[in-house]
């Protein structure tokens, strides 16, 4: 799904070899890929580790709001599709953890950082999924916003991250289309179903716009991240692009985007839209979302309850390695 860059670092003062730094900057500026064994500035390594691990955590936590609906999906077809989607999210998390590990942080360290609350994940998953229409809205809007962000990351400067994003993007399109299809069925259904679809759009619209992160003016590291090709577009540019393509999709469903200020602006060839409530965003980042505590408890429980399986598998492997050695 998606990451939001949230934990900002202060201004970076480099004490590194200026020649190496200059050579690195030149390679990145020439759109070359940086690979794990290449020299890289510490700040690049740190920023990437944070960004990729947050992204991985978002994929993993992102399974929870949807997994919640697998048993209640309205048909066998929908169950099979939702199960496949949730499994994809697990896969995306794994690709990304692997990419982050190549920067020198272990899987266990990353998972512990998530469970202790030290690491962040996308705020979007701290909203509850109240009805079946939410599963449609998530696929359509949340995965749609994720795609908008991830497509440019296929050309990000760090090779393992770029390759993980290529795989993720290939798989993500199905997520968005299955969500939109759910919305199509509901908005062509009974009055109650239409109401349900509209209600889901009302609740997911603004959190989806927040997924692109704070406005550029409040995103001090954007310039550095763009120079390093860790980020390829600014938050506001991506948000605008998302609004421009999504509004007509809502119209095709006969649903109304919950924004009184939304209006087509002929001069800029895009929509003007209302102000995002950033107070809410920062509250949710801090873990004050309606279900933040529930999400982390579910993660920790799954991890702790699975501990004996991991330990048994490790013990079994060790026993067989010993036997092989003795033989």
């Amino acid at each position: 799904m998606y990451t939001t860059e949230m934990q900002k670092t202060a201004t970076i003062v480099s004490t590194e070899d200026p020649d190496k730094l200059a050579a690195f900057e030149a390679r990145v500026a020439a759109d070359e890929f940086i690979e794990p064994k290449d020299w890289m500035p510490e700040a690049y390594r740190r920023t990437l580790t944070r960004q990729i691990s947050q992204h991985a955590h978002s994929e993993i936590v992102g399974m929870l709001p949807e997994g919640n609906w697998i048993t209640r999906a309205p048909s066998l077809r929908r169950k099979a599709i939702l199960l496949a989607k949730v499994q994809d999210e697990a896969g995306h998390g794994l690709y990304l953890y692997s990419a982050a590990e190549t920067l020198g942080t272990s899987r266990t360290e990353m998972i512990e950082a998530l469970h202790s609350g030290k690491a962040k994940y996308s705020t979007i998953f701290n909203y509850p999924t109240l009805t079946w229409a939410d599963i449609g809205a998530i696929g359509w809007l949340v995965d749609g916003a994720a795609i908008m962000n991830q497509v440019p990351l296929q050309r990000t400067s760090y090779g393992p991250y770029a390759r993980a994003m290529v795989r993720v993007c290939k798989e993500e399109s199905f997520h968005q289309r299955q969500g939109y299809e759910i919305m199509m069925h509901l908005s062509a259904g009974t009055a109650n179903q239409v109401r349900m679809a509209q209600d889901a759009l009302n609740r997911w619209w603004w959190p989806s716009l927040m997924m692109f992160g704070p406005p550029d003016a409040d995103s001090p590291n954007t310039a550095q991240s763009m120079r390093w090709r860790i980020k390829r577009d600014t938050n506001d540019d991506l948000r605008q692009r998302f609004v421009d393509i999504t509004v007509p999709q809502a119209e095709a469903l006969g649903l109304k985007v919950p924004d009184a200020d939304l209006a087509w602006n002929e001069a800029k060839g895009g929509y003007d839209f209302g102000a995002v409530d950033w107070e809410e965003f920062y509250a949710v980042v801090k873990g004050e979302g309606p279900v933040a505590r529930e999400r982390m408890k579910a993660r920790r429980d799954a991890w702790e309850e699975g501990a004996w399986v991991r330990e048994a598998a490790a013990a079994y492997a060790e026993k067989h390695a010993r036997k092989a050695e003795a033989a």
């Binding site: 994809d88 896969g91 794994l94 690709y95 692997s98 390759r163 991991r310 598998a313």
Partner: peptide, 22 residues
Amino acid sequence: GSVHAPDAEIALRHARDTYTRR
């Protein structure tokens, strides 16, 4: 890509689930 696993057999299973879903 890569996977974590305690032994080769489980590594194959994880690889199958992670990298060949399509």
